[in-house]
Each structure stands twice: as C-alpha cells, then as structure tokens.
C-alpha cells in the first residue's frame, strides 16, 4: 500500500529551485532513509510532505490526502520529530506530554492515559516530575518521539533524530524505529550517520533538489560496487559536483 506519493513535486524560492520535480513512492510500514548533503533540499521536501509548505507545482498524496486541499487533515496523520527534540526544557516531562496533548487537541482523559502509557514504556517514575533539561539525552530523545506520536499518526518524520547521541543510545533508538515499522507506521528518517542509512529498508540520496539515487542499501552498494553506503554517498555527491565544474 502506498503511504506517500509525489509526482513532479517542485518548490521554488524566487529563482532558486529547492526541490526539482521529484517523483517518489513510499510504502506503508517502510523505513525510508532521506539522505543528502546539507542544503540538498531534504528539509524543504519534508516540510511540503508535512503540509507546512505549499509546493510551487506537482502533486503529492499523503496517506491518500491531497497536499494542496487537505493539509489540515494531513497534519493529523503525520508526526514530526526534529533533531532539536522540540521539548520545552523548563517544563517537566509530564508537562511536556500535557502540552503536546493539548496541541493535538486530545481530551483530558486520553492525555492522562497517554501519560501513563509513556511512563510505563519509558520506565519513568520520578523523572515525570523532573525538568526536561535535567533528564539524560537518550531519555529526552525517546520522550520527543513519544510526544510527536501522541495523536497516533500513520506517518512519522524523524529529522536527524540521533544527532549528538552516543552509539549505544543510537542503536537503542533504532530498535524503536523497527518496532514502529512493524506496527505499520511509515517512517521517514534523515541522518548524517551512514551506518544508520544501512538500517533503512530503502534510501534516497538528494542533491540540488533532485533524487539522484533511490534503492535498498544492498542494491545501492551492489550497483555502485562499494562496501558501504558512506562510500556510495561520497562517490555520487562528488561525481555530481565534478559534473558541474
């Protein structure tokens, strides 16, 4: 089943084309890696798919909803977690959950049960009452994900979710991503850690607003005859840069 489909999706800012006629199909339950150099157009693409930014031209369906006409409905079906974790550091852990529950207009009863659910799944007791700035980064990361998913979205966007966390915390977080995928959630991940790219079901590499490669990590490595995705990435981006010069 197709979860996200774009046809010739384009976004221009003045004379600058940030996203250039992108065709993409992502399936339900897929972990889709969204790679590219800084400034390649990943964030613009994601902001359009989240219904936050109107495209200049082209089509996009998010869970069957039209990006132009149904952006408000789209927002209810998607979750977004940014690399900055977007939690309020001067609120307690519980208050952050309540706040996000309010943002997603969940009723009080549901917020209360979500809070208990999160406390159990993250193994929290005393931490619930602690200021978010004082909890360890690994916990903060899981909390940010839980808050981004309070409204039970079908598609979740993770924007560099593992920046600045150590290898152990990163691996633990990927176990959660696999779990989401098994429960039928579609997961978009952007990352600069190429060993994480290897964990995705399929990957796209973006450069100058276009998708220059799209395949499973295994196929990508085989096609380009490289041992790691890191090597494939560097090869493709460098080739592209040389073509321009």
């Amino acid at each position: 089943m197709i979860s996200v489909k774009t046809t010739q999706l384009t976004k221009k800012f003045g004379s600058f084309t940030a996203v250039d006629a992108v065709d993409l199909e992502v399936y339900k339950g897929e972990i889709f890696g969204f790679l590219g150099a800084n400034g390649a157009g990943k964030s613009t693409m994601i902001r359009m798919l989240c219904g936050l930014l109107m495209p200049s031209s082209g089509e996009a369906l998010i869970d069957g909803l039209d990006i132009y006409k149904e952006s408000e409905l789209i927002k209810k079906r998607i979750g977004y977690m940014s690399q900055k974790f977007s939690l309020y550091n001067d609120l307690t852990v519980a208050e952050n959950i309540e706040f996000y529950g309010g943002v997603y207009s969940l009723d009080k009863k549901l917020i209360r049960s979500k809070k208990e659910e999160i406390a159990v799944s993250l193994n929290l007791k005393e931490e619930m009452k602690r200021l978010t700035r004082d909890v360890p980064v690994g916990l903060k990361q899981r909390l940010a994900l839980a808050c981004a998913m309070l409204h039970d979205p079908k598609i979740i966007f993770l924007d560099e979710p593992t920046s600045g966390v150590d290898p152990k915390v990163r691996k633990d977080f990927w176990n959660i991503i696999y779990d989401l995928s098994e429960h039928g959630k579609t997961v978009f991940v952007t990352t600069h850690f190429m060993e994480e790219a290897e964990y995705c079901h399929r990957l796209s590499i973006m450069q100058d607003g276009r998708i220059i490669a799209l395949d499973s990590p295994e196929n990508m490595k085989a096609i380009h005859n490289e041992k790691t995705i890191q090597d494939v990435f560097i090869k493709l981006i460098k080739r592209q840069n040389n073509d321009e010069i």
């Binding site: 150099a37 600069h192 190429m194 890191q230 981006i237």
Partner: peptide
C-alpha cells in the same frame, strides 16, 4: 569537541 555534529558525510570527509 564533537566538531562534525550535523555535518554531512562529504563535508565531514
């Protein structure tokens, strides 16, 4: 101290 935080693989190299 973590100099390549948030930097893409090509720039890191």
């Amino acid at each position: 101290d973590e100099p390549t935080f948030g930097v893409d693989p090509v720039s890191r190299q």
